[in-house]
């Protein structure tokens, strides 16, 4: 209920719509991975999912950012049920990979930004290896490339006031880690899959 209201607000502010090109919305276990240029990215990808899919989908987010203040922790905990991970200095006890695998269990899907941070260049930055690890540990989970459009125009890095440009999310065909595929090759292929979804 609260989630629906926030999702509605997210779609209203960003004007975002989903374009399902390579797959259909489905509550099966998936990892949605996308380009990352704005703080609104996780919100908008989560908002455009149909309610049934949204209910089982949890965004992966940086613990340092989502733990400060009062609004962000509340949103992360109560609304998004975000998986908060340590991105600065992962240790054996604080391993993001374990957290993500645990959070998925046998029910949940994840929203992941494999660039590991927000970048304002024209192309996504090289992907971090987490997506590859998840793909090898859970070969049963679909890896769905997503392209988030115009968020860097709505709320670019370093700005607090949004401009109401219309956003959008394009969902591509799922990929998987092929047997014997090297990590760098897979990560580059995943990155290309996101870039290929850019509308124009």
């Amino acid at each position: 209920m609260r989630g629906d209201a926030v999702a509605f607000l997210g779609r209203l502010v960003t004007g975002a719509r989903a374009r399902w090109l390579g797959c259909e919305p489905d509550p099966r276990q998936r990892i949605y991975f996308a380009n990352h240029s704005s703080n609104l990215d996780a919100l908008v990808l989560w908002s455009v999912l149909p309610a049934a899919v949204r209910a089982v989908t949890r965004p992966v987010a940086a613990r340092d950012y989502w733990s400060s203040g009062w609004l962000r922790p509340w949103l992360a905990r109560e609304v998004f049920r975000a998986v908060l991970i340590e991105r600065k200095k992962p240790t054996v006890h604080d391993n993001p990979l374990i957290d993500m695998l645990e959070a998925m269990g046998d029910r949940h899907s994840l929203i992941l930004f494999p660039e590991g941070g927000r970048f304002s260049g024209d192309e996504p930055a090289p992907f971090k290896s987490g997506l590859h690890h998840l793909g090898t540990r859970r070969p049963d989970v679909e890896l769905v490339p997503c392209h988030i459009e115009n968020m860097n125009r709505i709320l670019p890095k370093g700005e607090i006031l949004p401009v109401p440009v219309l956003g959008g999310v394009t969902f591509g065909a799922p990929i998987r880690v092929e047997p014997g595929e090297a990590k760098p090759a897979f990560l580059e292929r995943a990155r290309r899959a996101v870039m290929a979804l850019e509308a124009r």
């Binding site: 125009r153 670019p156 440009v165």
Partner: peptide
């Protein structure tokens, strides 16, 4: 205006102007 600006390429430097 929202539809028009969405279709129009603007840059990072236009953000506050657009606001």
């Amino acid at each position: 205006l929202r539809e028009f600006i969405t279709l129009t390429p603007t840059r990072r430097g236009d953000h506050r102007t657009l606001f």
